[in-house]
Design a binder for these strands. Structure first.
Length: 254
DNA sequence: AACGACAGCAACCGCTATCAG
DNA sequence: GCTGATAGCGGTTGCTGTCGT
């Protein structure tokens, strides 16, 4: 039982790739295209694990890889996206053409995380905190009910019962526990999500759930969890409407 | 010049998601 | 619905270069 290992480990090269290996891999993919990573090393004549080949191609050999330093603009975007998405490096990388998740992850860990920590310490107690706590987790919830923003009570930031409310519309959190999800960012443009940055999210969207097997909603520190998410079936939840509801004055909006 | 500490980055590892049979 | 194969993601490791002593 169990999974077949991705490759036989014996006799395989590990560590840094040689120029020759790079060339072989490049040539092979140029001719045969990406995919079938498991069989690729054997067919290409490489003594490497398929996963290793895939990583090498994606992070280094791909023709559209942008080499060179991260620009100021890119850095700012990374910071903004990280506030929104947390350590979803592949999603962040998706917004930075030519950059890889590994590169961004490394850049964050070596440069930005330290800087962010430094900034945190300098924040006065009265300054509204802009922190990773506002992360919108991207693993959407398979919720079956939509929430009408009109039913939100602005004072309590809780859901107000309405005649049109479906039996479990207040059960967004309940559904969150199911967590068999699709990635809602497929359905929502991150540009729209950026509009939420720095903004308070009503209690409604916070989850009571703590921790799933993905480790997504580590909420003891106040991080938002799946409860901040909007699923496909909640499509009619008007983000702009929510935006105005929240009376946002954020520079990223528009 | 030699050595240790540190930073940056490439690569690895373990896990989950997804899909096909 | 179950199982196995595959792809992909994110955390971690370890190698290498640089800097300070």
């Amino acid at each position: 039982m169990g999974r077949r290992p991705c490759c036989a480990k014996e006799g395989l090269n590990k560590g840094a790739w040689t120029a020759n290996e790079d060339q072989i891999l490049k040539n092979y993919i140029t001719i045969h295209g990406e995919g079938k990573w498991r069989d690729l090393p054997q067919k290409a004549g490489l003594k490497r694990c398929g996963k290793s080949c895939r990583l090498r191609w994606l992070n280094y050999l791909r023709p559209d890889i942008k080499k060179g330093n991260i620009s100021i603009e890119e850095e700012e975007l990374i910071i903004r996206l990280h506030k929104l998405l947390g350590n979803r490096w592949s999603l962040i990388a998706g917004r930075l053409p030519g950059r890889t998740d590994n590169e961004i992850k490394n850049y964050w860990n070596t440069n930005l995380s330290k800087r962010m920590q430094g900034q945190k310490r300098n924040i006065s107690p009265n300054t509204p905190q802009v922190s990773s706590h506002n992360v919108i987790w991207t693993k959407a919830v398979k919720c079956t009910k939509a929430v009408n923003v009109d039913t939100l009570d602005p004072k309590s930031e809780t859901l107000v019962n309405s005649p049109s409310e479906t039996p479990s519309s207040s059960a967004i959190n309940e559904d969150n526990t199911n967590n068999n999800s699709t990635d809602f960012l497929v359905d929502f443009d991150i540009d729209e999500l950026l509009a939420f940055e720095y903004n308070p999210i009503p209690e409604l969207y916070r989850t009571q759930n703590r921790g799933d097997k993905m480790g997504n909603n580590v909420a003891d520190n106040g991080e938002y969890s799946h409860g901040t998410e909007f699923c496909q079936e909640c499509e009619h939840l008007d983000l702009r409407g929510l935006e105005s509801y929240l009376n946002l004055e954020d520079e990223w909006i528009n």
